[in-house]
């Protein structure tokens, strides 16, 4: 659920012009590229990086919401949140499997996450301070992710596109359960409504940042678009998200924390759209580079999970080896 505009990509290729042109012709004909087929190294590296970031985001994304499972206000909410967090884990696994088809191992990807070499969506480096944050995450963060992910279902790389189709099918429940939480809080006591407003205030701008840096700063976007890894630019998707989400906030009776937000009839080719205030990109880059409020805790939690699971992985392998070595006569 948590694709972010790609943070850093490496699209340099050392192949001959003929090879690159033949590959581009396949892409232009809307052919899907499959794992063992010839592909430019830049294409492979960009996909490994993007799918890896996406997978890590799903896995790290389990942490802020997992934080509230034991404190969900009812059994209904708890069951839904548990199922949602379990889905995120599943989505991470679909994506790791897709990345592995490009020749990187799961273990290498895990190591890259833990060492800080690989990135994940900046949004998960913010804390979940109240129950309303669970509503805001489902509504805004999953909403932004859906905006990002639907075009990825048509990505030129077959395994990634197939994983995204599976993910998008499961995603809608996440956003709806979040919005339902917001609806309930917004219709509750003044204190509950304040909680909902506070959550919107804190999650709005980080959600807009999820689409990645502005097009003017996103050097690798053009190549990713030409290869049909990406279908829309970061700014296009961000605009779609704002246009879709502002009316939902109105319906909740909450206000979007942007005093420059205004309807502009002329936007989107005359269909209209919202103008919105400037995004604080220095905050985005500081979070991406490791200095967000929760970066250290997130990686520490993943490191602990990896370390604490070591004996389980070792025991499972030893057990399998022992069983495989046993004579077949017993069967």
């Amino acid at each position: 659920m948590y694709a972010q505009g790609l943070i850093g990509a490496d699209t340099a290729s050392g192949e001959t012009a003929e090879f690159l042109a033949a590959f581009q012709a396949r892409i232009d004909a809307n052919e899907k590229i499959e794992p063992r087929e010839a592909m430019p190294e830049g294409y492979r590296r960009t996909l490994i990086r993007q799918i890896g970031q996406h997978a890590h985001s799903e896995i790290v994304g389990m942490l802020p919401e997992g934080n509230w499972i034991t404190r969900a206000p009812s059994l209904r909410r708890k069951a839904a949140l548990l199922a949602k967090v379990q889905d995120e884990g599943g989505h991470g696994l679909y994506l790791y499997a897709a990345a592995e088809t490009l020749g990187i191992s799961r273990e290498q990807m895990t190591q890259d996450l833990l060492s800080g070499k690989a990135k994940y969506s900046s949004i998960f480096n913010y804390p979940t301070l109240s129950w309303a944050d669970i509503g805001a995450i489902g509504w805004l963060v999953d909403g932004a992710a859906i905006m990002n992910q639907i075009p990825l279902c048509r990505c030129s790389y077959g395994p990634y596109a197939r994983a995204m189709i599976r993910i998008c099918k499961e995603e809608s429940f996440h956003q709806r359960q979040g919005y339902e939480i917001m609806l309930t809080l917004a219709a509750g006591s003044a204190e509950q409504k304040d909680m909902a407003q506070d959550a919107l205030n804190r999650w709005w701008w980080p959600s807009l940042m999820m689409f990645g840096p502005p097009d003017s700063d996103s050097q690798n976007s053009d190549q990713s678009m030409a290869w049909k890894i990406k279908r829309f630019s970061n700014d296009e998707l961000r605009q779609k998200f704002v246009d879709a989400t502002v009316p939902q906030a109105d319906r909740l009776g909450l206000s979007v924390p942007d005093d420059q937000l205004v309807w502009n009839e002329a936007k989107n080719g005359g269909a209209g759209g919202y103008d919105f205030g400037p995004i604080d990109w220095s905050e985005f880059w500081s979070v991406v580079k490791g200095d967000g409020p929760m970066n250290r805790q997130r990686i520490a939690a993943r490191q602990k999970a990896w370390d604490d699971g070591a004996w389980v992985r070792e025991a499972a392998l030893a057990h399998a080896a022992k069983k495989a070595a046993q004579p077949q006569a017993a069967e």
């Binding site: 696994l93 897709a98 499972a316």
Partner: peptide
């Protein structure tokens, strides 16, 4: 075919 998993043995 729908994807893949890592596991030490068939049961897992």
């Amino acid at each position: 075919h729908c994807g893949s998993v890592h596991a030490a043995d068939a049961e897992q």
